[in-house]
Amino acid sequence: MALPATHPPHVRPKTSVTRVMGEVVAALIPATAVYVWFFGPGLLLNMAVAVAVAVASEIAVLRLRGRDAGASLKDLSAVVTAVLLAFALPPLTPWYVTAIGSLFAIVFAKQLYGGLGYNPFNPAMAGYVVLLISFPAELTRWLPAVHAGLESGYVDFGTTLAYFVSGALPAGVSWDAIGGATPLDDLKTRLSVAETISEIRAAPLYGDFGGKGWEWVSNAVALGGVWLLFRKVIRWHIPVGVLAGLTFPATVAYLLDPGSHPSPGFHLFSGATMLAAFFIATDPVSAATSPLGRLIYGFGIGLLTFVIRSWGGYPDGVAFAVLLMNMAVPTIDRYTRPRIFGHVS
């Protein structure tokens, strides 16, 4: 009788890094569609250049190290980093800004640490923060949402492409005419000149929860996030932690002083809250590992985001909050290590 001798594992899981990363990109498709509908096709250009630079720099580093670049590219992690970076950037961003961010994210935040699995910081957010500090003007020029009942001109593809290529608007178009502050930015500026929340929220920029258009992008991102949860690509601890960490202090502040703190709903559906909760903070490499550690990690991100939004110098604090909690991950992991069964300390 012939007994076949095979090596374990005998039951192979269908999951792979490539499948996980691919599903993350797929889950962003509805958000991409909504974003392009409200803010024009700039996002697609940013994504294209970010992905191209990310892949090229990953190949370059691996070639220099004499490694096989193909295996590393197949896991799609560089594509996910690039797509998330593009999502964080304004719709009109010159190509070189996106390229520098993507290069920094892949080379410094990821490959110098040894590539996927070793990076202590979230590469996309490291790239974004570098751009935020190096190109403060370019990164604060946003567009108002079109198709949202706002009186704003649609920025056509020609203008978008011209700005993308040259970093300057074509003659006859000015930022004063087409630009618009993000709801978080606008809220911060108006609070600093002693307007109250109810006065600010009456402005046409604001919708039911966040800003018009913006809240629909957030909804679409959250939809993708729920899909990832349903597909078990991510687990619930980090998203719940982030949303609770933001909602809890926002509710307390709103109840104590509704005149100078926006409602928790505004915090949840503005800026990058949903993107952070479901897509950025859930990066399995730079996040904490145990369930309790993940809850603490997420809660910290939400709390720091609230602190920076409310009292800091930047309108949105998500990227900084993620990097700050990345710093704390080894320490969190150390103190939330699960107890070994049967071990009495």
Binding site: P120, F121, V129, L304, I308, G312, L324
Partner: peptide, 19 residues
């Protein structure tokens, strides 16, 4: 790599500017 890590931590701390 330690100095690069310190640099990235420094970037993260820029977020507290203006507090």
């Amino acid at each position: 790599i330690a100095l690069i890590t310190a640099g990235l931590m420094s970037l993260a701390f820029m977020g507290f500017a203006g507090l």
